[in-house]
Computed example of a mutant assay.
Amino acid sequence: MAKQTSQFRFFKSRHVPELTVLQAAMSDFRYDPHAHEEYAFGVTLAGRQDFFSSGQYHRSPPGNVIQFNPGEVHDGQSGGGSALGYVMTYVSPAQLEAAFADATGHESNESFRSRDTLIPDPVLRDAILELARLVTQHVGSRIDQEYALYRIATRLVQRDGQFNPGAVVGRSDALLKRAREYVLAHLEEDMSLDDLSQAAHLSKYHFLRLFRQQFGMTPHQYVINCRINAARHALETGEQPSAVAMRYGFADLSHFNRRFKRIYAMTPYQYQRAVTP
Rank of each mutant, 00 (worst) to 15 (best):
L196S: 04
Q95T: 04
R212H: 14
S141M: 15
Q145W: 07
A46F: 08
M217Y: 02
S92L: 12
M88I: 09
E189Y: 05
R159F: 00
Q49A: 01
E130F: 00
A24D: 10
R273T: 08
L84F: 11
R14E: 09
S78P: 07
V183P: 00
L129I: 01
Y86T: 03
G85E: 14
F51L: 13
F41W: 03
N109H: 13
R115G: 02
S192L: 01
V183L: 05
H36T: 09
E72G: 03
F10H: 11
K204A: 04
G47H: 10
G170Y: 07
L176Y: 11
D102F: 14
Y147A: 03
Q77G: 08
S53K: 01
R232L: 05
A24M: 15
D75A: 04
F112Q: 09
Q23A: 06
L235G: 08
T154F: 13
S197H: 08
R247A: 12
R9L: 01
M266W: 05
S242K: 15
L149N: 12
L84P: 06
T89E: 10
Q67H: 10
S172K: 04
E189F: 05
S53H: 06
D32S: 12
Q214V: 10
R259C: 13
I263Q: 13
S82W: 03
S78Y: 00
L96D: 04
Y31H: 15
M191F: 02
L184N: 10
H201K: 10
R113W: 07
D50C: 09
G216A: 12
Q67D: 02
E37N: 13
M266R: 11
F163G: 11
Q95V: 07
G161S: 08
C226Q: 12
E236C: 09
S6V: 13
E130V: 00
Y248H: 05
D252H: 01
R125M: 10
Q145L: 12
Q49F: 10
Q158L: 14
E146W: 02
H15R: 01
A98F: 04
P277F: 11
P61I: 10
M26E: 14
A98S: 14
Q67M: 10
I228N: 00
F260K: 09
A179S: 14
S60T: 08
Q272E: 08
H15I: 00
L184Y: 02
E38D: 15
S111N: 14
L175G: 02
A231E: 05
T276F: 01
M26L: 15
D28N: 15
L184G: 08
A230F: 02
L134C: 08
Y269C: 07
G63M: 12
A25T: 14
Q77H: 11
K204N: 03
F250Q: 00
V43A: 05
L19I: 13
D50A: 15
L149Y: 11
P241N: 03
R259Y: 08
L131D: 02
T267H: 07
I228G: 01
R142P: 00
F8Y: 00
G79T: 12
S6I: 15
S114V: 14
D173L: 08
R142N: 02
A174D: 07
Y222Q: 05
F100K: 07
E239H: 01
T5V: 13
N64W: 07
H74R: 04
T5C: 05
P93D: 00
N257S: 06
A265G: 02
E72F: 02
Q4P: 01
G55E: 09
Q270P: 06
Y86W: 12
I119A: 04
P277K: 13
R151F: 04
